[in-house]
């Protein structure tokens, strides 16, 4: 009895988050500048973390929880790398003292 209600609520929440992800994908496709697309991709990764959490409730397992943490780290690293690329044009700068050895 309780399980059915929980499943229905989780499925409704999944559908709502999927509609939100569709809106974010619209901004990724249409966005006029590069910063729009990076912001939308960041929000898309965070929404994907929420979807995995909801799926772990729906499939009744606890082994998906570590994937959420991994995905959060990867989304933040991608956002930081893109921000640095947009600002300076390169992501990993080589050391100034080693410039003539390269």
């Amino acid at each position: 009895m309780t399980n059915d209600i929980v499943n229905i609520i989780i499925i409704i929440a999944l559908i709502i988050v999927a509609c939100a992800m569709l809106g974010i994908v619209y901004r990724v496709i249409k966005g006029p500048t590069l910063a729009d697309r990076v912001v939308a991709l960041d929000a898309l990764g965070i929404s994907l973390m929420a979807m995995i959490a909801l799926f772990s409730v729906l499939l009744n397992t606890k082994y998906y929880i570590s994937i959420i943490m991994l995905l959060g780290v990867l989304a933040f690293l991608g956002t930081a790398a893109f921000a640095k690329f947009m600002e300076r044009g390169e992501i990993v700068e080589y050391d100034r003292h080693n410039r003539d050895h390269r």
């Binding site: 929440a13 709502i16 988050v17 992800m21 569709l22 809106g23 912001v39 929404s47 929420a50």
Partner: peptide
């Protein structure tokens, strides 16, 4: 449910 609605609000704002 509140978190899903906040996520939709974020998409609408985006």
């Amino acid at each position: 449910i509140l978190g899903a609605l906040l996520s939709v609000i974020s998409a609408i704002g985006l």
